[in-house]
Design a protein around this nucleic acid. Structure first.
Lengths: 145, 145
DNA sequence: CCAAGGTAGTTGAGCGCTGAACTATTCCGC
DNA sequence: GCGGAATAGTTCAGCGCTCAACTACCTTGG
């Protein structure tokens, strides 16, 4: 009944898990060491920095990083404590909150970015041939669904 | 100086992150819901089940799943509390500990496995063409390093 | 209008992980 | 052999996440 994995699939699966672990832990280690933030927080800063006025509704930000509302609320709380983000009431909807990137937050992001990009290259792109990078794009898109 | 990501790399990277998040959260959700354990614990049970006598030195088990000693110690503590693993002193090295899969642990693994494999297929393999699976293997191996 | 249900966001408890001490044992060079 | 370094494993504090309430506000049907 169960469609078990054959040997090749098993190997692919385990290599996949290992690769993901290597990339993620490497990424988190680099950001934590050099910028004092986990990767999830870095992504929040990136999304905010790309938004007009560095501002996004909480729910829009949650959607952008595919995070739960709860997680985002905790995370923004942390970012706020560090002075990288501030909350503001949403004019159109009094239930809503805006997350606003502060100047200090933008500075923190700019300082973190080069090391982060370097890590992304070192951990992922530099290890792949150009054809593999092309393939990865399609694979990732298909899996992301 | 910094080798920034071009548009295509950016898209690949974000798709990769998203794909990984989908697979991991889907996997964890399935195991948590149907077997009451996180994926990391499932992997420990798998590695133990593959070892002779269902037994491995703590450090060997840590190596097998690429886990820190600290993390493993906590995890085995949990598995022990659930009766799925027991600890035993290591005869050759009095510093050492053996993690031993119990009959109950093996049963828990057998019950969890079909649903887990189904999730792996649904989240990863079913979304990829055969050629993509072949490519993924090489990519994952290269990144796992 | 206004009550019922949906939506936005927060909060609190508990879990798993990390990194840094800490203990106990073994290994190694003199 | 013996004293110092390395190794095995545990423990603790703190962090980020999940899940389930909970509050506050908006929307919609009667």
């Amino acid at each position: 009944m169960t469609r078990w994995l054959d040997d090749e699939e098993q190997q692919t699966w385990r290599a996949f898990l290992r690769a993901v672990a290597v990339v993620q832990s490497g990424l988190d280690a680099q950001l934590q060491a050099e910028a004092g933030m986990p990767h999830a927080y870095y992504e929040l800063l990136v999304r905010l920095s790309e938004a007009p006025e560095g501002t996004l509704r909480m729910s829009a930000l949650a959607g952008a990083v595919h995070s739960s509302r709860s997680r985002l609320s905790h995370a923004v709380g942390q970012l706020e404590q560090r002075g990288w983000v501030r909350r503001a009431p949403c004019p159109q909807d009094r239930r809503g909150q805006l997350a606003v990137l502060t100047a200090e937050g933008r500075r923190a992001l700019q300082q973190a970015a080069p090391g982060h990009v370097e890590a992304v290259r070192r951990l992922l792109f530099d290890r792949l041939a150009p054809a593999q990078v092309r393939h990865l794009r399609g694979i990732a898109a298909a899996v992301a669904g």
